[in-house]
């Protein structure tokens, strides 16, 4: 890892000011991706701005129709939160499937979402549940947040402060994990909002997206067999040593059927 200047601001304003003053800065959340990237010298920021000291980025709030999760909340806190398990169990279940226990004790929801890794789990929840990503200056719809491979709607200097997830009638998440890394080769989250169904997909494309073809048929018939006839085009899908684009398109339908079967049992 190259040398850098380390900062630990106590407020969002201070963090943004440090970012504006630095030469080539990056924000540090849990560091589960960024530090590994820096160790490989694939990233070499001049300044690391650690967000661990900003109190307003932590905590979980549950109200009648939404769950609000502070960006600095670790995966194990989301997985183990009795409040979230009660109000939005699919989010706890999804968080418990990320990486391994030690990684879940460090990795944060804000870091995962800001990184827009094509195989990360949380983006499926942001898209599939129709979440809203809040930053220090605005709110961004989950449908518009993820733009491309490691590309989001965030502007330079912008910090995710918390994420709101609307509470559906019921929801389920299934993923086909890479056996070594536990990253999602494909993951599908289906949420039933009572009359309208949302389907969020991660792993298949350059970033998370809604499977509109599957949503259309499920809005007609909420039945796993309805997915069989849907065409999932693999154009632009990820094609690498883990899985071909064609295989990923196939997995989207398989994971969607399994998620829907789980959903119908709840």
């Amino acid at each position: 890892m190259y040398q850098f200047n380390y900062h630990k601001p106590a407020s969002l304003d201070e963090a943004v000011a440090l970012f504006r003053e630095a030469d080539d800065p990056m924000y540090l959340s849990g560091g589960m991706t960024l530090l590994a990237t820096m160790k490989q010298r694939l990233a070499a920021p001049t300044d690391l701005i650690d967000l661990a000291g900003i109190a307003e980025m932590t905590g979980v709030q549950v109200n009648a129709d939404a769950v609000r999760v502070g960006a600095f909340t670790t995966h194990n806190v989301v997985a183990g939160s009795a409040e979230i398990q009660q109000a939005l169990p699919v989010l706890s279940q999804l968080a418990g499937l990320i990486g391994d226990n030690q990684v879940r004790n460090r990795g944060t929801i804000g870091g995962s979402v800001a990184n827009s890794d094509p195989s990360a789990d949380y983006p499926a929840a942001v898209v599939g549940l129709g979440g809203t990503v809040h930053t220090q200056q605005r709110s961004i719809s989950g449908d518009e947040f993820f733009q491309d491979l490691f590309e989001t709607a965030l502007q330079p200097g912008e910090i995710i402060t918390h994420i709101d997830f609307p509470i559906p009638k019921r929801a389920a998440y299934r993923k086909f994990p890479n056996p070594a890394s536990r990253y999602a080769v494909v993951g599908v989250l289906i949420a039933d909002f009572g009359g309208s169904v949302r389907v969020g997909v991660t792993g298949a494309g350059p970033c998370a997206f809604r499977a509109s073809g599957i949503e259309e048929v499920l809005n007609e018939h909420l039945d796993p067999s309805a997915i069989n006839g849907v065409e999932v085009p693999d154009a632009g899908f990820n094609n690498d040593l883990h899985a071909s684009a064609e295989y990923r398109a196939h997995l989207v339908k398989v994971m969607a059927r399994r998620a829907l079967s789980d959903l119908l049992k709840t």
Binding site: G31, M32, A36, D50, N101, Q102, R106
Partner: peptide, 27 residues
């Protein structure tokens, strides 16, 4: 491994298991 995979560096940080190769001393 030095890449967050093998867990040989696991220690407890404020009571929870973490991989000490994947965090800064400053953290």
């Amino acid at each position: 491994c030095d890449t967050t995979q093998c867990g040989a560096c696991t220690v407890h940080l404020d009571g929870r298991a973490v991989k000490a190769c994947s965090m800064l001393a400053a953290q």
